[in-house]
Structures are given as structure tokens and as C-alpha cells.
């Protein structure tokens, strides 16, 4: 229920930044875990990283061409990340080493 509501909220917010396009896929972080182990996005598309956990996370990647670092992301914070290079992107939480996922960026 809460996830559906958050999704809706993010869908509305994401809609603002991507015009009339469909909402980006949301990666949740509840319970110190990413909601997906692996997702596929097209090059140039974004994912929304929503901290719907109760504590801060630090989502980042050092995969070449798609490096990013959201810094300390507080509960309730939602940030879009647009992937620019094709390839596998290892996304981690710098704070919580059990949180890891792969974003497959395809042409």
C-alpha cells in the first residue's frame, strides 16, 4: 500500500522532469535492500532512486562511463539518475555493503 502510494508520488514527480513521457522505474531501498537485483534501461533513460527506508543511504556507482554518487540520501528523498553509456553498471550503497544491484544499460 505504502509502496503503491510512493510509486504514485514518484510517478507524478518524475513526470515533471521527463515531460509527458512515462514515469521512470523506481528503485526502492526499504529494509536496507534494493527492490531489484537487476534492471535493464535504455541508454539515455533514467531510474529513480527513492529512499523509502528509515535511515540514510549513499547510492553510487564507480562503473566507467556511468559514475554517480547521490551522497547521503535522507529518507523520503527521490533522485533520478540518467545512464549515458551502454554496459553493466554496478550500483551500491556505500554505507551498506549488502545493498548491491546491476543496471544493464542497452543501446
Amino acid at each position: 500500500m505504502s509502496r503503491a502510494r510512493s510509486l504514485l508520488a514518484v510517478a507524478i514527480l518524475a513526470g515533471l522532469s521527463t515531460g509527458a513521457l512515462a514515469a521512470t522505474q523506481v528503485i526502492h531501498q526499504q529494509g536496507r535492500a534494493f527492490s531489484e537485483e537487476s534492471v535493464t534501461v535504455k541508454k539515455g533513460d533514467a531510474l529513480t532512486f527513492l529512499n523509502d527506508d528509515t535511515i540514510p543511504h549513499n547510492i553510487m556507482s564507480t562503473s566507467k562511463g556511468n559514475e554517480f554518487n547521490l551522497g547521503s540520501q535522507q529518507p523520503g528523498a527521490s533522485t533520478d539518475v540518467t545512464f549515458k553509456e551502454a554496459g553493466d553498471v554496478a550500483v551500491i550503497c556505500a554505507i551498506h555493503p549488502r545493498m548491491k544491484m546491476t543496471v544493464k544499460v542497452v543501446d
Binding site: G65, S78, V81, F83
Partner: peptide, 10 residues
Amino acid sequence: AALVGETKQV
């Protein structure tokens, strides 16, 4: 690098 958008509060 990947592009990081603005952070919103939900």
C-alpha cells in the same frame, strides 16, 4: 558520468 537529477522529497 551518469546524470544526477534534482532530489525531490516524497
